[in-house]
């Protein structure tokens, strides 16, 4: 059973702002789903290896050679805040420092 504090903690980890209604609904819905999912914890899985991937491939590396890539203008075309300054081009973001006013 998830309580309000847990929902808010997970929402913060997920970078998801939830309003009060959503917090309440999420607590009830996730608890309901988890109640069902919990049943797998009753299985005897001692010594069973986990599967993260079904393809029988370990690592597949290409030759470490330069390959063509998008020019900056193409990569920036869909950006909400493309930056084109004398210092170069890039993705604009707000300040990561919460208290710093713009």
């Amino acid at each position: 059973m998830l309580d309000r504090a847990q929902v808010l903690h997970v929402a913060r980890l997920a970078r998801l702002e939830l309003d009060d209604d959503e917090v309440q609904r999420m607590a009830a819905e996730l608890s309901h789903v988890l109640d069902h999912i919990e049943k797998i914890r009753e299985l005897d899985l001692d010594g069973v290896a986990p599967t993260s991937h079904v393809v029988d491939i370990v690592n597949r590396l290409r030759a470490d050679e330069p390959m063509p890539c998008f020019p900056p203008e193409v990569a920036l075309a869909a950006a909400p805040e493309p930056l084109r300054t004398a210092a170069g081009t890039g993705f604009g973001v707000p300040s990561p420092l919460a208290d710093e006013s713009p």
């Binding site: 702002e17 990569a75 869909a78 950006a79 805040e81 300040s95 990561p96």
Partner: peptide, 15 residues
């Protein structure tokens, strides 16, 4: 940041 919607770009990064 790179594509799609942005909301409240004047707030701090996490917000």
């Amino acid at each position: 940041v790179r594509y799609g919607l942005r909301v409240d770009g004047d707030a701090d990064l996490i917000t």
